[in-house]
Design a binder for these strands. Sequence first.
DNA 1: ACAAAAGTGTTAGCAGTACACCCATGC
DNA 2: GCATGGGTGTACTGCTAACACTTTTGT
Lengths: 265, 265
Amino acid sequence: MTLTIRSESAASAPSPSDPTRVAVSTVIFTLRRPDGCDLPVLSLPLVRRTRDPYGDFWALPGGWLDADEELEDAASRTLGETTGLAASYLEQLYAFGAIDRSPSRVISIVYWALLRSDDVDAQLAAHLAAGDAPENVEWFDAAHLPTLAFDHNAIVDYALWRLRNKVGYSRIAHGFLPGSFTLAELREVYEAILERRLDPANFRRQVEGSGTLIPTDDFRTGSHRPARLYRYNHDVELSDRGPLGTAPPASREQSATPHTPKEAR
Amino acid sequence: MTLTIRSESAASAPSPSDPTRVAVSTVIFTLRRPDGCDLPVLSLPLVRRTRDPYGDFWALPGGWLDADEELEDAASRTLGETTGLAASYLEQLYAFGAIDRSPSRVISIVYWALLRSDDVDAQLAAHLAAGDAPENVEWFDAAHLPTLAFDHNAIVDYALWRLRNKVGYSRIAHGFLPGSFTLAELREVYEAILERRLDPANFRRQVEGSGTLIPTDDFRTGSHRPARLYRYNHDVELSDRGPLGTAPPASREQSATPHTPKEAR
DNA sequence: ACAAAAGTGTTAGCAGTACACCCATGC
DNA sequence: GCATGGGTGTACTGCTAACACTTTTGT
């Protein structure tokens, strides 16, 4: 007698009444400088839920996965709908599917993203000027979140852990910055993420020696001695995500191109 | 005018005719010593598909996610159905959901697992003795796979990358070994995974200094000078998976407890 | 002139590597 | 005895942390 083993989708499909649904959510990080404070802090946008379950709770931006939509596109879409911006970095975080995380069975495929600080500031200023700020979206300090809907607190914790880890062996810190920046600005990003001061001298040597930065001929002036501006060297792509790194939709375009926010339907 | 932004499951559920289905597959690694060869090689079990799409192709073990089944349980279940064993290590790898990866939309949440070599050898010997070896399951050398069904070749590549990475900063190598083992056996595991020889002297110092091993009073005899047996120190759990590390089902029980393979239905 | 940030130099310590060497056992 | 793997000692190298120091600007 021999075993008969099933492989994926070899057997009949699940019954159509299967209530398992797939959602895509995104933990969106940026760095914001609180008025008066010297060090920027990690912030993320949250959406206030309008109905049960968890009505009135804050939740991660997200939505149901469209049948003909790539996972990463769904993350980009909801990110754009929430912030009106395009991410400078986007990566899958984890698939959360515990049975009890929602009254009905929901599999959430969660992404995490970075937004350039200047993009965010510009968008907020524009909303302020036009008076059309979305009223159910708010930016929160990542270190002081309220109780969120579902398991979203745990999800943010995990995303923070990944960010802090990844900043050590990859160059994602550039995701918060515009095309050119000073070493002090880059160091400030690292300090905000890692929550500790770094030696300017050693930081300079490390990052200069890594070959990931190209010095420009421009300088940032304004206070004290002018600082040279650098830009990211796109030639060196370290194998951050292994074989997945370059394979998926290489939408490594311009992060400066803001989405057109979809207005209320 | 204000934007109305949806958060996950705030809006109405997708139409019930939505054909998106969720599957769970697992890349299962073990180390097998090819007859005569001195160095063990990474191997994984594959399942031959019996129907289209990709009929007769080899594929990763997996199946549809049951509505009332945790993701990790689904991985354990199909792993047990395929091998008759329980994994010594199990972790989520990635959620693959490209639209064109299957004729119908399938989201595959893929796990990766380790099996103890001695468990696998015992199971194979038992099947040989009883003559009930499953005919549609076969072990393949991870370095020389045929063309697999769906995107499973890319998935295995990614799993291999994760394994090779993780062996550097965590102690998953023990997942291949029984409760007690010599340093040479542990080193052999590292050498097989990393595909390069390691200096025995330096390897000893590194692993002894890490505090992850506890020396026992037993020795492995048989050839030349007896070698001390060590066992894994379960007290030191390095934060492999961050906040997710200890939270999920802490089924860190005995890997020696083999599943009862479910026979053909 | 002075404060403050940009940028350079120097040193100590630590981890990884290479390799020479002794120890204990089976044959 | 001798081959073989177990186990120890030691020197070298490269990276990091710490910190003294020079340079260049705004005020």
